[in-house]
Amino acid sequence: MRDRILAAAVTVIQARGIVAATTKEIARTAGVSEGSLYNHFANKTALFAAALAEVTGTARTAMVELLGSAGLHTVEENLTRLATEMVRFYGELLPMTGPVLADPELIEWLRGDGPGKAQNDVAARSRARTSGGRTGEPPAPGAPGGPPAGPPGGPTAGPVTGHAALIGYLEAERKAGRLLDGAPLPFIAAALLGGCQQHAFLTRLAGAEAVAAGARLPAAPAEFAARLVRAVLAGHLATP
C-alpha cells in the first residue's frame, strides 16, 4: 500500500505541482482512504518528501551504474547513457521542484540528503520483507539502494551528490588515460548536467517542437544526449 500511495503522490504532484496537490486526490488516485495515508507517512510534508525521493532515485541509480562502467565501453557511450537518463529525470523532477525552491523546510531536507536517506529506508524495508524480518548487511556505499560513496554528509551530500559522483567517474577515466590530464572535470560535469536540465526545462515550457525549431536541438532525449556528450567532450578525449 505504501508503494501505491507513493506512486500516486508522484503522479499527482507532477500533474499539479506541490502547492496544488492534495492528500485527498492522492488517496483517490491510490484507491485508498485519505486517513490511510497517515499510516505510512507522518504528515503531508513527509509524503511529498518521499515522492521527491522516489523520483531522485532514478538519477542515483544512473550515477551508480556510471561509476561501475569506468574503463568499460567508451567514455562517450557511458556519458550518453547517463545523459539520456538525466534528461528524462529532469523532465520528471522539474514539475515537482518549483515550489520546493521557496520552501525552507524542504530545502533543508534536500541539503541534508533527504532523498538518499529515504531511498536507504525503502531499501532496508525491502530487505526486511524479503528476509523474513532480518535486515542483514546494508548495501555498500555507492551500491544500488545504498548510501552515496564517500563520507556521509559534508559538501558532496544532498543536491550536489550527482555532480560529485559524475566528477568521480571522470577522474577514474582520466586516471585510466581515457581523458586528457588537463580536462576541466568539474566544468565538464556542469556542462553535461546543465545541458540535460536545460533540454528538460525548454521541453516542459515550450514543447518539443519549439525545442527542435527554435532552440535547434533534437527533441528526442537519446539523440540530444549523444550530440551533447560529443560537444562537451570535444578536445578532452585521449587519443586511443
Rank of each mutant, 00 (worst) to 15 (best):
T29W: 08
G35Y: 10
G35M: 09
L37G: 03
N39P: 00
F41M: 11
K44N: 10
T45I: 01
A46Q: 09
A51Y: 11
A53P: 10
E54M: 05
V55M: 08
V55K: 06
T56E: 11
G57Y: 10
T58N: 04
T61H: 06
T61A: 03
A62M: 07
A62T: 10
M63T: 00
E65A: 06
A70S: 07
H73C: 04
H73E: 15
T74H: 03
T74Q: 05
E76N: 06
E77S: 12
L79G: 01
T80S: 15
L82I: 15
L82K: 08
A83N: 05
F89M: 06
L94A: 05
T97Q: 15
P99I: 09
P104V: 13
E105L: 14
E105F: 02
E105C: 00
I107L: 14
I107E: 13
R111A: 10
D113W: 02
P115V: 04
G116E: 07
A118S: 08
A118Q: 12
Q119S: 01
Q119V: 00
N120D: 08
V122Q: 12
V122K: 03
A123G: 01
A124T: 07
R125K: 08
R127H: 03
R127I: 03
T130Q: 11
T130K: 10
T130A: 11
G132H: 13
G132I: 09
R134S: 06
G136Q: 10
E137N: 06
E137R: 08
P139K: 13
P141A: 05
